[in-house]
Amino acid sequence: MSKSPRKSIVASFGLLSSELETELVGQKPATPVPLGGNRVGAGVVAAAHRAIDDIRSERDRLKALIDSGAAAVRHLDPSHVDPSPYPDRLPDDDDGATFEAFKRSIETEGQKVPVQVRKHPSSPDRFQIVYGHRRWLAARQLGRPLLALEVEISDLDLVLAQGIENANRQDLTWIERALFASRMDQAGIKPRYIYAALAIEDAELARMRNVYRAVPAEIIEAIGRAPKIGRPRWLELAKMVSDVPTAIETLRAALVEKLDATETSDQRFQRLLNTVKPVPPRRDPPAISDKRGRLLATLVASPKEVRIAAEGSLGTEFLKFLQAELPSLAERFASEHEQEKS
């Protein structure tokens, strides 16, 4: 599958999703539609399977169903709704404050956009969220009915729907996308569908696999979103884990040893990376000794700097000697330099 069609699929799904929800927000809750051909089907989320013309046709069909009154937005008891079995977000560093502000907006302005749900595959009286987890959690905490659109959807289409929906969100971090790819991978979803859901190429999926196959999900989740930590440093961590047999246990121990209560996920990542990074061998500076082996000084040199530090009982006298000898050394250098030119 080429790059362009995948981008078109993602863009069209976002258009379809936003247009559909805009239509639904203005409607009053209606009686649920019985299972059957007139019910809103999996067209909303099966977009990744079809060509762009099919997606547009599906969008037109859904809009026609809404206009005819055949589709229904439901008010559900949020306690009868469960989260998706494939979580796709990690907690934010300021998730508490951010969520409280979001919940207040729901409380004062109401839920403007319905969540999407499906029937729970093993509990007939319950539902699972396709997407809209924050709206569901806010409704649950506020004790309010949850505005929801029910769709018929398989596990495969559910994770594809979440991936496509999240592809249009700019705040997802690289590791969140990689972790979601790993959950699709574990669910047995074929790589071509993962490409479509996340709008990525096979090379990027290979890089993601390098990370989530080396670093256990529990450690990734414990680190968090790490918004300032991009792909290169996650790959670096994965390499450290692969190269050092004890690295995973070291990381687990470092996670337990939380040094700072205000530590952000970025800082936590860097701290853990530092714990498994190999420590460069210490190199003692060259020593300057006299003929008797008595230590006089140590020398540290770079292309533009020389540092001599006094050592031993004669070190200070040796530095004074060098200072006194510097003018004659400078003259000697200048004389030899002139001879080389001539």
Rank of each mutant, 00 (worst) to 15 (best):
Ile66Gly: 09
Asp67Arg: 15
Ser68Ile: 07
Gly69Cys: 14
Gly69Asn: 13
Ala70Pro: 00
Arg74Asp: 05
His75Trp: 04
Leu76Ala: 10
Val81Gly: 00
Ser84Cys: 14
Leu90Lys: 00
Asp93Asn: 15
Asp94Tyr: 03
Asp95Val: 10
Ala97Met: 01
Ala101Gln: 13
Ala101Ser: 12
Arg104Gly: 02
Ser105Asn: 11
Ile106Arg: 10
Ile106Cys: 11
Thr108Gly: 00
Gln111Glu: 07
Gln111Asp: 06
Lys112Gly: 08
Pro114Gln: 03
Pro114Asp: 03
Lys119Ala: 15
His120Leu: 11
Asp125Trp: 09
Asp125Val: 06
Asp125Ala: 14
Arg126Asn: 08
Arg126Trp: 04
Phe127Trp: 15
Gln128Leu: 14
Gln128Arg: 06
Ile129Asp: 00
Ile129Gln: 02
Val130Thr: 06
Gly132Tyr: 03
His133Trp: 01
Leu137Met: 08
Ala139Cys: 12
Arg144Glu: 10
Pro145His: 09
Ile153Cys: 15
Ile153Gly: 02
Ser154Gly: 12
Ser154Asn: 10
Leu156Asn: 09
Leu156Tyr: 06
Asp157Lys: 02
Gly163Arg: 05
Gly163Lys: 02
Glu165Ile: 00
Asn166Cys: 11
Gln170Thr: 12
Asp171Asn: 09
Glu176Ala: 05
Arg177Leu: 13
Ala181Ser: 13
Ser182Leu: 11
Arg183Lys: 15
Asp185Asn: 12
Asp185Ile: 03
Asp185Trp: 15
Gln186Phe: 11
Ile189Met: 15
Pro191Ala: 14
Pro191Glu: 14
Arg192Thr: 08
Ala196Met: 07
Ile200Trp: 04
Asp202Asn: 03
Ala203Thr: 04
Glu204His: 09
Ala206Asp: 15
